[in-house]
Design a protein around this nucleic acid. Structure first.
Length: 475
RNA sequence: GGCCCCUUCGUCUAGUGGUCCAGGACACCGGGUUCUCAGUCCGGUAAUCGCGGGUUCGAAUCCCGCAGGGGUCACCA
């Protein structure tokens, strides 16, 4: 039994959203769970569409998610090179073999002529098939001309690991271009040669290629190559549920999520469960659990909608369940700049209080700011509070003064603060909704914060009393 | 238009002839948790399983038809 080898073969067009990476994830999982290899191959056969820097971008995306590959353009391997533009000689050699067998021929028509065929076909409501116009006399390889595959149309039935048994008709098979006039191969040709030479055992790719499979099957035959196993992954749809996920419908580049403080395991768990589950009621999976439990056969056949709300939930779940020290390491670049003067211990305590409330790490900045800097007095916090807005200024000052008085006697341990404020509640005959709210607002000037006692404890006595004073002075 | 694929709560899904007048999760709505937000706990709304025929004692599950949606028909991948 030979080892499973899968690959991710993106073209460097500069953008990798969650849907594309999901395909990579599935291929990676299949390889890892079988102790096989995962290969990164760059399909840069279209110079016009290539975007500067996107290879680095792809590599970074994979690595950031923990999807390491065994062979690839930057690390090489036994079947390199791993950029198609570095393999042009190989494609030409294989194309010539096809010519020799009489299974490939030079393009005969001009672009305009072909365009006219196409219009003609459209008019008569028929699919455009180039082979209907195939010249009687076929020319061999001609420099400067595209090279076409001479197809042998027939029906096929084959098995797809996800879609199951599929049947296709000969109408799907045509004479397609294998080598462009600039000498570069097309995807349709290059990937077949490369997968063969790189000994890929399973092709995992998205469903827009499904309609092309009969063509590929025909080419495998002509080349006398045994086709690998196919696993076609359905598209990921945008939130509207209509069209494929694209930039338009808030499909962020996958790296953007990392930048906003989404955890890599939250992302992989989300991507995997977009169209896959293990048949149990488990909803969230670590990367290791995915390796253990993933099965390509259980991937859904219908396209899934991208629901960012679910991703946000999953991310919060991972944050809450992460060890505080680990979370602190990950949080490094998300603190407000005012935090730089504070030591690790203090920041770690702040993070401990905020951990339960973070959906993604970039929220840290706003949620933690008052621990590092005194905020401006925010009058609306009292004015817009139905219970507080009815109090007279005099009453508020009285309550805050009493609070300050009480707190000034505290040793500022959480328990002590709690006990003293509870006593004060009784003494003043007040509800927490009044007294605690006032203190919370005075000390944080924020619409939300962690628990009052813990917050005051962290702020410390001096800072707490100072902030209450300032609130009093504002009336 | 040809070829191909898909169709269970708003969303992700469980489900492969009876235990499903359909289960879980997200979202949403109530309530508890001494203050806010979040979390957490408890509860709720939500799918006549795309539609129509069959087969069967019995169908989300099998068969046939239809409809809707999507993909593809490039010297893009």
């Amino acid at each position: 039994m030979n080892k499973i080898r899968t690959r991710f073969a993106p073209s460097p067009t500069g953008y990798l959203h969650v849907g594309s990476l999901r395909t990579a994830l599935f291929a990676w999982l299949l390889a890892r769970q079988n102790k096989g290899q995962f290969i990164l191959r760059i399909e840069d056969t279209d110079k016009n569409r290539e975007v500067e820097g996107s290879i680095e971008h792809i590599i970074k995306s994979l690595k950031s998610l923990g999807l390491n590959y065994d062979e690839g353009p930057d690390i090489n391997g036994p079947y390199g090179p791993y950029r198609q533009s570095d393999r042009l000689d190989i494609y030409k050699e294989w194309a010539l073999k096809l010519v020799q067998k009489g299974r490939a021929y030079a393009e005969e028509y001009s672009e305009e002529e072909i365009e006219n065929f196409r219009i003609e076909a459209k008019k008569s409501k028929e699919p455009f098939l180039y082979r209907n116009y195939r010249p009687k006399e076929l020319k061999g390889y001609t420099k400067g001309k595209a090279l076409r595959f001479k197809s042998d149309p027939k029906d096929y039935s084959y098995n797809d690991l996800i879609y199951g048994d599929l049947k296709t008709s000969k109408e799907a098979i045509d004479d397609f271009i294998i080598l462009k006039s600039d000498g570069y191969p097309t995807y349709n040709f290059a990937h077949i040669i490369d997968d063969y030479l790189m000994q890929i055992t399973h092709i995992i790719r998205s469903s827009e290629f499904l309609a092309s499979v009969p063509k590929f099957l025909n080419l495998y035959e002509a080349l006398d190559i045994k086709a690998p196993q196919f696993a076609t992954v359905p598209a990921v749809l945008g939130p509207d549920g209509k069209k494929k996920l694209s930039k338009r419908d808030n499909a962020k580049d996958a790296l953007d999520y990392l930048k906003e403080g989404y955890l890599k395991e939250a992302l992989t768990s989300f991507m995997a469960t977009l169209g896959w589950n293990d048949g149990t009621e488990q909803e969230i999976f670590s990367l290791n659990e995915l390796i253990e439990k993933f099965s390509i056969e259980k991937v859904q056949r219908s396209p899934a909608n991208f629901d960012e709300k679910r991703l946000i939930y999953i991310n919060g779940y991972f944050i809450r369940n992460l060890d505080l020290d680990k979370l602190y390491d990950l949080s490094k670049e998300f603190w407000p700049k005012e935090a730089s003067g504070y030591d690790d211990l203090y920041k770690k305590k702040v993070l401990g209080l905020l951990k339960e409330r973070l959906k993604y790490l970039s929220e840290l900045k706003d949620l933690s700011i008052f621990f590092f800097r005194e905020l401006e007095i925010n009058e609306s916090l009292i004015k817009d509070n139905s219970k507080l807005s009815v109090l007279t200024n005099k009453k508020i000052i009285e309550l805050l003064s009493a609070s300050k008085e009480t707190l000034s006697k505290s040793n500022f341990e959480v328990e002590d603060i709690k006990n003293r404020l509870n006593d004060l509640l009784i003494k003043l005959d007040q509800k927490p909704a009044i007294l605690f709210s006032l203190i919370r607002i005075a000390t944080t000037q924020s619409p939300s914060s962690p628990g009052l006692f813990e917050t005051l404890n962290l702020l410390g006595k001096k800072e707490t009393l100072k902030r209450i004073d300032r609130q009093i002075a504002a009336f």
